[in-house]
């Protein structure tokens, strides 16, 4: 019986110790995932790891390829993480790949996402490589931006409610709304009128006699079209000539205005014009006085014979006619 009891004790100790070792081994294996696969170590340096923990998943293009195996602060503000990545997945990760930390869903744990680099033909990573990192916009950042946006929107909506600004007036001003409604009614009428007009135009067009009318000649006769083309060409030439003449005239007028010639004096110098005016008055007065003198000469006896001779000659010519 004693021998049997000692055998039982040995078996019992073996079972208990074996169970403890089994649990320990399972814990060890569980804490070091991918222990049965060949792995490589990759490193990435972040300013902020946003609550990343040991054992968090590492994903490459959304596929789990490893776990975070170490997180340590290497220098001020720089945190280096070590990632244990399956060797077969590392074949697809290039040296210019980028790692970023993001949340696995809204309330999920953090994950390290590795994105393929831009150079898909580049060299593959090897164990010990440090890959580039990129900073993702965190939920906190998004929420703070959203808060600012909300405040702005609140201000805008308050302004609108108070009837300020174009939108506010549009929404709150009943008269404007009535006006717009009226405008729309008018627009509708106008469009209806336009429709009727278009129908009439269509009718007129359909009634055109394409064989004999002027429109038909314009639309279909090629000879007339050529003539018209010539007319238009001539018109074009004429208008160009007119343009040239106008330009010359313009230049001439400018020259007159700018030069010191008589015409410029006449058009620009008021004193000169007034002098001319007074001269003309004096000439008029002088001619009147000359007329009086000539009248007096006719009655002078030195010249009377001459004027009588002229009268006689005129009478003779009248008789002959």
């Amino acid at each position: 019986m004693g021998k049997t009891t000692s055998k039982k004790i040995r078996v019992g100790i073996f079972v208990v110790v074996g169970t403890i070792i089994l649990v320990g081994a399972l814990y060890f294996i569980g804490s070091r995932q991918h222990i049965f696969t060949k792995n490589i170590q990759l490193y990435a340096v972040f300013d902020n790891v946003s609550g990343l923990q040991l054992g968090n998943n590492v994903r490459y293009s959304g596929i789990n390829v490893g776990t975070v195996s170490k997180i340590e602060m290497t220098e001020v503000g720089k945190i280096t993480i070590e990632m244990t990545v399956e060797e077969k997945a590392a074949y697809f990760i290039k040296k210019n790949a980028e790692a970023s930390i993001s949340s696995d869903g809204l309330v999920g744990s953090m994950v390290v996402n590795i994105y393929p680099g831009s150079e898909l033909q580049g060299a593959n990573v090897v164990s010990g490589d440090t890959i580039q990192t990129s900073i993702k916009v965190s939920i906190d950042d998004m929420l703070s931006t959203l808060r600012a946006t909300n405040e702005d929107l609140s201000k805008i909506s308050n302004q609108i409610l108070m009837g300020k600004g174009t939108l506010g007036v549009l929404i709150n001003d009943t008269i404007l709304a009535q006006n717009i409604q009226q405008t729309l009614v008018e627009l509708r009428k106008t469009s209806e009128g336009t429709g009727v007009a278009m129908a009439k135009i269509n009718q007129i067009i359909s009634k055109i006699n394409y064989d004999e009318s002027a429109a038909a000649v314009i639309l279909s006769d090629t000879a007339t079209a050529n003539q018209l083309r010539t007319v238009f060409a001539n018109l074009k030439t004429s208008s160009e000539d007119i343009n040239a003449v106008t330009k010359n005239l313009d230049d001439y007028i400018k020259e007159i205005k700018s030069s010191k010639g008589a015409l410029n004096h006449i058009t620009q110098d008021e004193t000169f014009v007034r002098e001319i005016d007074s001269t003309m008055i004096q000439i008029k007065e002088a001619s009147e006085k000359l007329n009086q003198n000539m009248e007096a000469l006719q009655h002078n006896f030195f010249f009377r014979g001459y004027f009588k001779k002229l009268e006689r000659q005129e009478r003779r010519e009248a008789k002959e006619n």
Binding site: T5, K8, I9, R10, V11, G12, I13, F14
Partner: peptide, 14 residues
Amino acid sequence: TKSFFAEIGDMTLF
């Protein structure tokens, strides 16, 4: 303790 291990051992043999 001996009794504990003996019982576990006995149960294992069982």
